[in-house]
Design a protein around this nucleic acid. Structure first.
Lengths: 218, 218, 218, 218
DNA sequence: TATGAATGAGAATTCATTCAT
DNA sequence: CATGAATGAATTCTCATTCAT
């Protein structure tokens, strides 16, 4: 039922993504749209085939199973969403340090919001699948520990040394940052994507919440 | 396709909840367990029947449709989770005011965490359904505006007057509080319910984040 | 599937019909109404129970099976519809002969029309069941041969001797009479019961058709 | 519940009938056979699938629903049975007039008997469905009024002028003709298809009944 | 490579019937 | 007598997947 090995599958997808034919692309796009709308299980391959204007058999010729089609949607997103962040940071954010944690935070939040806005449907699919797939959860936690923690840890240390951050363990800081930002993203992008949000103000508020909280200075 | 009127259905469920027979109860409990584990759509009524040790027909005699069984799980939870909170507050928290916003916040977060911990499976089901059901989203937003906003607004006003809170619009404050706490709950209860969490410390950290943020001396 | 022995069952029903309790009567009436409307197979016992305002179990307490309920509707009708006719004829029509075949025919057609009008729903049910139940067909044919043929045969002979009827074999005459009248009844009572019919004129036309046909002067 | 629009559906069927694949044809044939034998509601798709030697899913792939399979049986029959009759008459019977109403009547009765004999099962199905489906009844009545009445009306007028027919309103004449012939068909083809009938003699008798009745000349 | 007809296992739901109360 | 909860077999229909063309 669950994918044999998510990561192996991931690596295979990596190579394939670029090389998608027109029909493959149409299938993936149709799948993303309908999976996001109705949920993976509630979506039939027949529906996807119609939306993609291909024969049902074509889906299976290219993706083998319905679950594999799902992974072909999720995995490239994960690949792009997370590790690349790390790489960017090493080359970009971290090495070319921002003058304050605030501007750093603002930059990264804006960056990730833009990314999610672009891939809002896949994000919804991912959130839904996380609820039911232990393998995905494990995978995400591992990525967090192996990729995010070290890279962001270094960043946090820098700002802690500058006295801009509370002197809490990085794991704690990151978990708080993570749940707060992730929670915001879920509310905004997954649950209420149709509400109108004032982008500028929202980011500003979120950054202030994270940095100063909502308590008044005493 | 979707339930005709979620709220009407809700009120009817209210009365019925107490009067559940033994078998009905077993069905509901089995449904909660499996829905949470695999998702509503991926769960078959046959599976539920086996887990509840009843005949499949019995499910339909009592709940009519599979969807109605889902509502019989979700709706009483919503009824219990939200409006009662408001009532409790009017009679409890608000009228018997805490000596500080911090202790108020700590109290309510602990209270809601305990509630969610008790109903962790239903919470997962609710989160999953929120992703696909517009009616549920609408219902929750309406409850937020009609119930939470006025009651909590009054509370916030009190503390603002005492100078314990930033002077931001209540809607803004509540949205920030809400997404932050809700996000935390989703991470903790829905996505990673199996991780070990140090309750005391977590609540403390969350309250500090909300009140002071993670930024150091201003 | 089919009733063990329609005739045995029939005789048992005979006795029971008079002795029906209130609930039994309500069940039979509800069954007649719904069977006629939707057909026997498409009607559920649950439906009947609701319409009769009894518990579903009550139906089975009294009638054993759904099929037996059907027979409890059909059989008394057959008993009343056919043999009694014969008896009436022996005592009434035949022995107190009408002055012409025309008045005889008019009398009997009016009489049977009135009877059918009164039992229009059961007639519909009977017609529907005749299509699928060989036993019913056999039963009807046997009744025709054993009861109707001799009795009516005598009547026909009388009028043939008087020179009012073509000198054809009784079987032929009766089959023609039968299909013609029966066909008319089906059209009128089973297929188009809601159309408005001018009773007087219809009977008159039917009698004329049977006696003179629609051909003009010979 | 009932078909949205029988006539629309009808026209769509028209085109499709010719293009039936082998399996579709086998399904339709099996359906006709079993529907006629046991009735539509009492027939399961599983049964049809077995008789047609296809998988049950194949039925639904081609016909969508069981009811639609029923329509795929009935509608082409209606299309072929009725309007074409009218056309044939305009080009055949009416324009190439018979020398007497008797020969005309004999011709048409023979023609329709042959048609029914060929499609005896579908006729049974149609008769059974007429009992429960208002839409079918409406459709037939409309066809009678729009198609049969004008065309046959003209024919009757012709023979009335020649003095071969009673001077009754066409509607009356046709209703009498119709119920008489239809009644005969139902008896013969639907109720007692297995009895042995002497074709020649039967038609002759029926025509005589219609033209002269069974009364002796006075 | 692409198709779409065919499949059969499995889904939700219905239903006649039983039986303890 | 009457009830209605409980049953599980049967029913209609869906769906991922296969395969001949």
């Amino acid at each position: 039922m669950s994918s044999k090995n998510l990561i192996e599958s991931a690596l295979m997808q990596m190579n394939l993504k670029e090389k998608r034919t027109d029909k493959q692309q149409r299938i993936v796009e149709a799948a993303i749209k309908i999976f996001a709308e109705k949920g993976y299980t509630a979506t039939s391959t027949n529906e996807i085939a119609k939306a993609a204007e291909v024969a049902e058999g074509t889906i299976f010729r290219h993706f083998g199973t319905k679950e594999n089609l799902l992974l072909s949607v999720i995995v490239p997103f994960l690949m792009e969403a997370a590790p690349i962040v790390a790489d960017e940071f090493i080359k970009g954010v971290v090495s070319k340090p921002y003058d304050s944690f605030e501007s750093f935070l603002t930059a990264i939040i804006k960056n990730r919001f833009a990314f999610l806005e672009e891939h809002i449907d896949i994000f919804k699919i991912l959130v839904a699948e996380l609820l039911n797939r232990e393998d995905l959860r494990q995978y995400l936690m591992k990525m967090f520990e192996q990729k995010a923690l070290p890279v962001f840890g270094a960043v946090l240390d820098t700002y802690k040394q500058r006295g801009e951050l509370l002197d809490l363990p990085n794991a704690t800081l990151l978990r708080m940052l993570g749940t707060c930002i992730f929670g915001y993203c879920i509310s905004r992008f997954a649950f209420f994507p149709n509400s109108k949000w004032d982008d500028e103000a929202e980011v500003e508020n979120l950054v202030r919440l994270i940095l100063q909280g909502i308590g008044a200075s005493k």
